[in-house]
Design a protein around this nucleic acid. Structure first.
Length: 488
RNA sequence: GGCGCCAUAGUGCAACGGUUAGCACGGCAGGCUUUCAAUCUGCAGAUCCGGGUUCGAUUCCCGGUGGCGCUACCA
């Protein structure tokens, strides 16, 4: 091994949004690069014209940036490097490491179709495997078929003897018998490369020293190692990271609900919380530390400490992380997120960026111990920002029951109007004095008032809430609630 | 089917071959208070099974089982 600085890459294919598994792979790549002083590049693997959705590329880049995953080079697009792959395939053909295959492509295209047609597949399997008949075609036959204009793919000629081994920093030294590896296609009959070819050609061209990717690629790695050698290049070191599974222990997919990181961003998760959650899926710093900031992750990350066991995505724990970060985030950094949430809900007011900035900060701070997602500011805390809110059914039923309430609340309004100063202590005094005079527990009035002014049973302590809402709004809301309370 | 990988509470992670197997999330039960989705306290909960190796296996080896992956002219 030379002393060159590591070069790693994340290579998503734009067939969908950035999903959590890919995001974590990208994160591990980034951490490894930063930890070793290496370079992290981004490459878009868009060689499958059928499934490719170019318009998704930007979203993937945005999601990576959202997560704080910034690349040093790229993005490179494989679709712009097709000549390279064709050249490589030609070279292998000439060198005898590959041969033209004139067989018709398998008809069982999609994974679904493959599953459905089990029997057919089994019958088809023996033929497709080990020896494609074209492997044994004579030179003359090959040339005449090509001259006839028959379409052909280029297959790699896997040696029948020996074995192929490679170093994996996570799974250890691997070795597989070449007899287990089938002659795989390098170049489709369309002239487009398959993944196996393009990934190796590019990793060589880009000087990739460490390939960190999902463990689903583990079984195919020997093929690629063979390719490296055939192309006269030294294989990199690999690091396969375990997969992330859904709660049912199958691979994470759309039917598990949100699987794209963009969806979590929209849902109101903080990027640093999401990243912290992600990094602990398949890795741990070795002790019981759970809350790690970016620097600490970089400092403590290493490939050998990555687990070999698949991990199940646990949304509850993700939310817990979000709560942790939500509580700690400096208010000035939190406010922009809140602004977005309120804007999305259509209840943002411009003065909160101006004269009422302090009020906003104070209110958000009051609210935040009870929030789990950024969206909570616009949902359960809605009444703090707009008069347009509803009374929660369960809250009404629980706290508006007492038929003495309407009368007492009218008196409360009067008392509050008379408060010398609109602050916590005066509000509290007005209410408690009234409760005492009426011979009821203060809680009765407190809870009923809370529901009246914020519509919910869950909210910050009442008197602080009252201060933040202001006298005028509090009195108005209590009055407005009176009829509903009377009929409860 | 073939090949491979993996296996500690429900979940995520710890435990030089020697610990009462630890932490966190979640769950449950209480406390507090003015509500709880806030907060405090407590409780339950795991080494997949069977063989070895060893004075001693969660840990090493073999077998089984299970899960997952690959087995495409997808990546």
């Amino acid at each position: 091994m030379t002393n060159e600085k590591p070069r790693v890459r994340f290579a998503p294919s734009p067939t969908g949004y950035l999903h959590v598994g890919g995001a974590r792979t990208a994160l591990f790549n980034l951490l490894f690069a930063r930890n070793t002083g290496g370079t992290f590049l981004l490459r878009i693997e868009d060689t499958d014209v059928e499934r490719n959705r170019p318009e998704l590329v930007q979203g993937i880049l945005d999601d990576l940036k959202w997560l704080g995953i910034h690349w040093d080079e790229g993005p490179y697009f494989q679709s712009e490097r097709l000549d390279l792959y064709r050249e490589a395939a030609q070279r292998l053909l000439v060198a005898g490491s590959a041969y033209p295959c004139f067989c018709a492509p398998s008809q069982y295209a999609g994974p679904e179709a493959r599953e459905e047609s089990e029997e057919t597949e089994e019958e088809a399997a023996p033929m497709a495997r080990q020896s494609c008949p074209c492997r044994h075609l004579s030179m003359a036959d090959r040339e005449s078929k090509i001259r006839e204009g028959l379409p052909y793919a280029i297959r790699f000629h896997v040696p029948e003897e020996g074995s192929t081994s490679f170093q994996d920093e996570v799974f250890g030294q691997r070795e597989v018998a070449n007899s287990e590896i089938e002659d795989f296609v390098l170049l489709r009959s369309t002239g487009l490369p398959t993944y196996q070819l393009s990934v190796v050609v590019d990793d060589i061209a880009m000087g990739i020293t460490h390939v960190v990717r999902g463990a689903d690629h583990l079984s195919n790695t020997p093929k690629q190692v063979l390719l490296y050698r055939a192309l006269g290049a030294k294989p990199p070191i690999f690091g396969h990271v375990p997969l992330i599974l859904g709660p049912d222990r199958t691979r994470l997919s759309k039917r598990h609900g949100a699987t794209s990181v963009g969806a979590y961003a929209e849902e109101g998760f903080l990027p640093e919380a999401f990243r912290n959650f992600l990094v602990l899926l398949g890795w741990s710093p070795g002790d019981d530390t759970e809350l790690l900031d970016s620097d600490e992750m970089v400092r403590r990350f290493s490939l050998p400490s990555v687990s070999r066991t698949n991990a199940v995505f646990d949304r509850a724990k993700l939310e817990w992380f979000n709560v942790q970060y939500l509580q700690k985030l400096p208010i000035e950094r939190l406010l922009p997120y809140v602004e977005k949430a309120l804007r999305d809900a259509g209840i943002w007011r411009e003065e909160w960026n101006g004269s009422e900035r302090a009020w906003l900060a104070r209110t958000v701070d009051l609210l935040r111990p009870r929030t789990r997602l950024l969206g909570d500011f616009a949902t359960w805390a809605r009444a703090f920002f707009t008069d347009d809110f509803d009374y929660d059914e369960a809250a009404r039923a629980k706290f508006w029951k007492d038929e003495r309430l309407p009368g007492m609340l009218e008196k409360l309004v009067t008392a509050l109007e008379a408060a010398p100063e609109w602050d916590h202590d005066n509000c509290e005094k007005a209410l408690r004095d009234l409760a005492a005079a009426e011979g009821v527990k203060a809680g009765l009035l407190i809870n009923a008032t809370r529901v009246a002014i914020v519509g919910r049973a869950v909210a910050p302590p009442l008197f602080e809430t009252m201060v933040v809402l202001g006298r005028e709004r509090v009195l108005r809301r209590i009055r407005q609630a009176l009829p509903a309370i009377a009929t409860q």
